[in-house]
Structures are given as C-alpha cells and as structure tokens.
Write a protein that binds this DNA or RNA. Structure first.
Length: 822
DNA sequence: ATCTCCCGCCATATG
DNA sequence: CATATGGCGGGAGAT
C-alpha cells in the first residue's frame, strides 16, 4: 500500500515555511493556502498543529526549523526546483530525503516542548503520531526507542508513551558518561584503533587480544540499559526483555561521545565497540554492516536532538564518517553519592546490600557469562524492587517517593531538574505553553491530571547538576591569552610494540591553563570548570557568553552556557583543527613550541576504591587524565599496564593538526569524570619522581633552573581548595592558579590509567599578547621560558620531512587528521 | 563506487 | 489470537 503522493505540495510547503524569502517564481501556493483538507502532507498536519499551539511554541518551532534544517531545506528546495523545472508532472517520490528519519524526527519533536511543564505531562500516542506524521509505525519506533534511551520519553503501555522532554537529559548523560567510563570505552576505542594499524601483516595473529581481556571489564556486549530513578520503564514487562537493543545501542553510542575526549566518534569504531568488540574477530561483515545501519538510524535521531553532528574525519586511511558531540557538556559529577542514586540498571541482580560503583558497573556490563540468568523477568523485578527501595531511602529527602505504576504521572521531579529550569530561557517564559498531547480517547482516565508536584527545596545542596551550575553562576574566566601552557601527552604503547610499531603514538593537546576552580565556602567543594571560547571571534562574542544563563532569548533550547561549553568544545575539536591547517603560517609566528619528549614514570594507578575518591575533588584531575587517554581521531594505543622501560623512538614528528595550539583555542571544557578514582587514591600511590619532573621542566625551559617544582607532597595532593594552601613555592596570591599548575602537572604524571609510565611533553605557549592579570602573574612567570619566546624549540627537520627533537626519544608518526563538516 | 539509510518482512512480545 | 514491537538486512537513492 503506497501512500498517495502529493509531494510537490509538500515540498513547497516545507520550503516556504522555512524560507519564505526564497520563493521560486513559478511556484507555490502560499503556506496559508495549504489545503487543510489535504491529509497527505505530513507537513500540513504539522503546520496546523503548530498554529494551533501557542505562539510561543510556534515561534520556537519556526526558529528551530529554520536554524536546524536549513541545510535540509536547501536540499528540499533543490528538489523542488528540480521538480518544477523538470516534469511538471508529479515528480512524486518525496525524494528519499524527505522521508529521512532525521526529518521525521524533527517533526516528531516539534510536537512536544523541550521542557514540558512538570505538572502537565504530555502523552504520546503512537497511533496519532503515525497518522499525523504519516509514517509507518516502524519508523516511529526507531525514534521513540532512541528517545527512550535518553529518557526523554518512557513507555507507559502499548501504544502509549510519556513525554519528558529534555528534563532528564542532564541526568541521563551524566549517568551514561559514568557508565561509559566505568566501562573503559576509552581503552576499547584505543584498542580498536590500534588494531586498525596492525591490520597489515598480521596473519590472523590476533595476539593482542589478550590485552583486551587483560583489563578485565572489556566485555560489555551484555544487554543492559541505564535507567534513571523515576524514569524506569513502566510497564515493567518491557524491562527484562531483549527488546532493548536499539536503546542500548543508543546509550552506548552516546557514552562513547561522553567518554572520549575529542568528542568525536567514528561510525566504524562505534560499530565495532557495539558489536561486542570483544574477542573473536567477527569478520562478520554483514553484522558490521547491520550495526552501521543501526548507528545511522540512531545518529539521525541524535542529530535531530542536536546532540551530535555529522562530520568527517580524514586520516591517512581515508575519509571516514563520524559524528561529533554537540550536546551539552557533561561534567563529571562532583557528588558521587547523589549520582549513585541516580544511575541504575534494570537488569543484573545485585546481591550485595550496598553495591559499590564497581559492582554497579559490573552489573551494568556483566562479564559475558553465558549463563546469564539475569534475563529472567521475575528476578529482574525482584532486583528492581530492591533497588527501588534502596533508592527511596537514599534519596528520601530529595525525591518524592514513587508510588505505583498507576500513579506514574506524578513522576518525581529531580532537584537537578529544578535547578535546571531557571537556566532554560524557553521554559521560564511561559509555562502555559505545553501542549497537551492527549492520546487514545478510549482511555480517558489516562489523561494526566495536573498534579502540582511538590518541589524539594534542597536542590542546590543535593543532586547538583553541573550544567545548571555553570549556567546559574557562570565563572568569569580571565582571558589569559598569554603564557598559556599546554601539555601534550604521549601515549606510549606497549614496550615491545614501541620499537617495531610506531604508529601508535599520538599527540594530544591538553589545554589546561584555562581551567579554573571555584571553591565553595563549605566543606563541599564545587568544582567548576569553565572554558574560554576558543574561536577567533572570541573577542566579540565572548562577553555574551560570560553571561551564561541570561535571559537573552535563546533560539536553541539549550542554555547559553551550555552552548558555550558545547561550542568551545566543538571548536576545539573541529575548527581548531581545521583552522590550524590553513593558519599554519600565522601560527608559526604567533606560537612557539617547546616540544621535547621525556619519559616520566607515572604513578601506578590501580583502581582505587571509589568511595575514598568521592571525597576528594578530582574534577580537573579526572578530566585531564581522561583527555590524555582518548584520542579517537588519532587513534591511540592504550597504555598497557606493562612497564615501559624504554622507549626507543627515532624521530619526533609533530603533525600540525595534532598540536594546533592556537592561543585562541583554549577551550578546554575538560570533561570531568569520576573515574579518576585511580588517581585520587593518591595517599598511597607512589608518585613520579619530582626530580624527574623538575629536570624535565627545567630542561624544557618551562621553569628556570632555580625553580623547583614542589616535590611529591604537592603533586600528590589533589589540588583542591582545601589543599591549595599546601602549595608553598609562591606568594599567597597564587593559590588558585598555583593549584592549577601543579594540578596540571600532577595530572600529567598521573595520566597513566592502566599504565605506569608515560611520556609527557610540555609545550609552552609564550605570551605574545597582553600581560597576565594579577592572580595569574605568578603562574605565568612560573611557566615563562627564561629564554623567552625567542627560544627556539629544538626541532629540526629531517630529510624525510619528519622532525627530530632533542635526543629523539619520542617518535610521533605523522598522522594527517582533518575534521570536516560533511 | 561508497555512503546513507529507507522499507518492510517477519520473529517476538504483549495484552 | 490479534496486535504491537522492533531486529534485520536487501537494495536503492545520494554523493
């Protein structure tokens, strides 16, 4: 049964609707002329719907569509013109694009407010949706499934879903990130990358597989779904079922973004990881293809949500499709406890009374034990109820106790959510805007009865949502464009591999100078990390950004601060890289690197106990640590636990793209993580020799020979407010900055997650512009090279074009990377 | 040719 | 049993 097609009309409508100005002469019926009677154009329905809605929604909708799908519109327009020019005759076939899942998703999302009023829930009736959007049911499932994975909707019963909007997004992403970390996706990615290079001549000698299993939790193919309290799958039946594949895939996909530092994930890698990645090189080509297909589906939806964006990553291997995260920055939770209660799973049973994070993680991704009985629904239910109970207890003061499935409407509002609200320009303006999507007329009682939800007032002290934080009280960051120091972290591969296999190395820029800490007065330290705009236009639009969550009308549904973060993030990865390419020359003049490679014994980082860690402030630490680890683009070789005695590296080649450290591109937006557990258990962990550090720093010229980097004590201490005082080698005015510096160093030295040794390269970016501000002075000087900007890096070109540095200890293979937008 | 990914068959789950 | 879900992969439009 093919649907009648009136495509020309549709196209035109779409076009005019979104781009009223570029109207083809020959054409179209004005928007208003759209025959309301025409049931076949999904757009018309949408339009009617929109016009029926409050002006608020309508305008937003228009804005959204304008900004979001402009590209698509152009395409559509193109098609349209084509139609017109070509056969007047119904060119018909809505051109594949008009039927894309992405577009469909847009339409779908247009039906519901991003931030529905908590008191009034929107219900989704699949029948209605399919009818109104005029799509096959199957497609809606695709969308809904992904939305479900983000907890933007949840299933109530057959045919019925509740619309949550983006209220849960922060929590969800947080949880996902956490799980992603616990799952060591970073390593997995690195593994894959590595393997990628080994492909060549390696007669199936997949020897390195061991490595995968070596760090234990590499297997995670087990189906598991991350839930949020209050957003569990109602209709419990859905729970233990296997029908969560797409949802789980979606979550994992998202995790990959949240976990990797350049938040870029290529489809290929994602697919491999999602496939199970584990052992047994599934040469299964078809399986891979299928996975890719699914990923495209998911990606389309995520794109519509503006969480990711399609890009292309070009390396020597060729151009590969990838996606970059454009969603809100997800900072690691600074409050473990809270999160603990937030992140749960629905599947695996937990026998322990008080599951630690590890256990939780295991639960989420149980070892691929085949005899997995967790699937048994009854068991699952039991576990769930237990967990629920625990949850209730843990979060008793915070969230209303959830009642029963029947009263699901009164879904508890999280403090986080509340805190988030003020940050939403949209939401605050007119609460009355939500459209009530009533569903099946057959079940009237299903209509939500507005139930004023009692809002817990302890929002700020409890579940702290990083996003809201930064938006509510933006950290004003002094723009120290000068004297910014960067660290490049070298990821050594296995010792044995090193000599024979160099491609594994990579450079990773670690902008750290712009990381700022803000401490609260109470014992609870709230770390805030702010980033500077890394764009060339920074100077201009930055003031705006600083305002963070101001009432400045926002086209997007995101907070300005969020966008700021997002943006800087994106810029860092994309633009930076791109820009650098063409700005190479100019960079030469404005930048001076002092690269040098050193081998620094890194602290052996074992999995510290998380509880201990939770107390300490590891925000920044974690972030950098992570940063050091991931480099999806370049491909990194995971640092094995095995000692790296000597790295025999002949040459050091710096690919511009890898080091593009423009003064403007400070955007660090370090992703904080809580898995810094390893590093935070510093008290007992051995530290890198401070002398080594000193030597290195001095040698590089980052510090005068006379200066000594504080010995272990400082490095060992997590640079947190409370501990800042310990830093002694400077006047009192330094504290913050000081802590920052030492933190960076410390982080670097702690960088090895699973490994014990790592190579660190510190690059200094001499201050070329203005003078540092007061508080920074010390730091700046501290890092200023004695020789000044004129000191040339000891780089020398080799005959082969590569560059040799000092002793030639580190070898960085050339890797051309280029991120481009579609 | 490769990248995207729509379509819809059909196995399962649900009620 | 009738439907609702959704895994899956062929194969065709887009580039």
């Amino acid at each position: 049964l093919k649907t009648p097609l009136k495509q020309a009309a549709t196209s035109q409508l779409v076009l005019t609707e979104r781009q009223p100005d570029c109207q083809p002469l020959t054409t179209p019926p004005k928007p208003k002329e759209t025959p309301p009677a025409d049931p076949w154009t999904p757009t018309s329905n949408l339009k009617m719907l929109i016009s029926a809605a409050s002006p608020e929604i309508r305008s937003r909708e228009q804005r959204r569509q304008l900004s979001d799908i402009s590209s698509e519109v152009l395409q559509t327009k193109h098609c349209l013109q084509e139609h017109l020019l070509g056969d007047e005759y119904e060119k018909s076939q809505p051109s594949r694009k008009e039927k894309s899942l992405g577009l469909l998703c847009h339409k779908f999302l247009a039906r519901y407010p991003d931030y529905p009023s908590p008191s009034q829930k929107s219900y989704i009736c699949l029948d209605e949706v399919t009818e109104e959007l005029h799509v096959e049911r199957r497609r809606i499932y695709d969308i809904v499934n992904v939305l479900e994975s983000l907890h933007m909707v949840s299933r109530l019963a057959r045919n019925r879903y509740v619309w949550h909007g983006r209220h849960n997004l922060p929590q969800t992403l947080q949880a996902l990130r956490k799980v992603g970390e616990e799952n060591k996706y970073i390593q997995q990615i690195q593994m894959i990358k590595k393997r990628e290079y080994e492909h060549e001549f390696d007669p199936d000698g997949e020897r390195n597989e061991e490595m995968a299993s070596s760090f234990g939790s590499s297997e995670q193919s087990e189906m598991s779904f991350v839930e949020l309290p209050g957003v569990e799958f109602r209709a419990a039946s859905v729970n233990g079922r296997k029908y969560k594949s797409l949802r789980v895939m979606s979550q994992k996909f998202v995790m990959l973004f949240l976990v990797s530092t350049p938040q870029i994930v290529s489809l290929e890698v994602a697919a491999k990881i999602l496939i199970g990645e584990d052992q047994l090189e599934d040469l299964d080509k078809s399986k891979f293809k299928t996975k890719i297909r699914r990923l495209y589906d998911i990606a389309n939806v995520l794109s519509s949500l503006k969480l990711i964006k399609k890009i292309h990553v070009t390396e020597e291997r060729g151009r590969k499709p990838a996606f970059t995260w454009t969603g809100p920055e997800v900072l690691p939770n600074t409050q473990d406890t809270k999160l603990e209660a937030t992140s749960t799973t629905c599947s695996p049973p937990i026998s322990e009374p008080i599951p630690s994070k590890e256990q939780c993680s295991k639960a989420l991704f149980p070892s691929k034990g085949k005899q997995n009985f967790t699937r048994h629904s009854s068991l699952i239910k039991l576990v769930k109820s237990i967990e629920n109970d625990r949850r209730k207890i843990q979060s008793a003061p915070t969230s209303p106790v959830k009642i029963s499935a029947s009263t699901y409407q009164s879904l508890p509002v999280f403090p986080n959510t509340i805190a988030q609200i003020p940050a939403q320009p949209e939401g605050q303006s007119k609460p009355a805007e939500e459209m009530q999507m009533k569903c099946a007329p057959s079940s009237p009682e299903a209509v939500p009865k507005p139930e004023p939800c009692q809002q817990p007032a302890l929002s700020q002290s409890l579940g702290v949502c990083p996003a809201s934080h930064s938006s509510v009280s933006p950290v004003i960051l002094p723009h120290s464009q000068s004297g910014v120091s960067y660290a490049i972290y070298l990821h050594p591969s296995q010792a044995h591999t090193v000599t024979t296999y160099s491609p594994g190395f990579m450079l990773q820029p670690l902008p750290c100078a712009n990381v700022t800490e803000i401490k609260s007065t109470n014992s609870k330290v709230l770390n805030k990390i702010t980033t500077e705009e890394g764009d060339s236009q920074r100077g201009t639009d930055e003031p705006t950004k600083s305002l963070a969550a101001e009432e400045r009308p926002d086209t997007k549904s995101e907070t300005s601060s969020q966008r700021c973060l997002k943006r800087s993030q994106a810029l860092q990865e994309n633009n930076l890289i791109k820009r650098c390419k063409k700005d190479e020359e100019s960079l030469d003049t404005s930048l001076t690197f002092f690269p040098s490679g050193y081998l620094i014994p890194l602290t052996h980082c074992t999995h510290g106990n998380k509880a201990e860690c939770s107390n300490k402030e590891k925000a920044g630490v974690c972030s950098l640590q992570h940063t050091a680890y991931s480099s999806p683009i370049t491909g990194v070789i995971p640092m094995p636990a095995s000692e790296l005695k000597t790295v025999n590296i002949p040459a050091f080649h710096i690919t511009p793209l890898n080091i593009m450290l423009s003064p403007n591109s400070l955007a660090a937006s370090p992703v904080l993580s809580n898995s810094c557990l390893n590093s935070s258990s510093t008290s007992s962990a051995p530290n890198p020799s401070s002398s080594a550090l000193n030597f290195m720093l001095q040698h590089i010229g980052l510090i005068p020979a006379s200066v000594q980097v504080p010995a272990n004590p400082v490095l060992q201490h997590v640079p947190v407010s409370s501990q800042s005082e310990n830093i002694s080698h400077s006047s009192g005015s330094t504290n913050v900055q000081e802590g920052k510096v030492s933190k960076n160093i410390w982080q670097l030295s702690q960088g090895g997650l699973s490994g014990k040794y790592g190579a660190v390269i510190l690059l200094q970016q001499p201050s070329a512009t203005k003078e540092p501000q007061e508080p920074q002075a010390v730091t700046e000087n501290f890092f200023r090279t004695p020789g000044g900007p004129n000191t040339e890096p000891s780089l020398s070109a080799n005959s082969d074009g590569t560059q040799r540095i000092s002793q030639g200890t580190l070898y960085i293979p050339q890797r051309k990377l280029e991120v481009s937008e579609d």
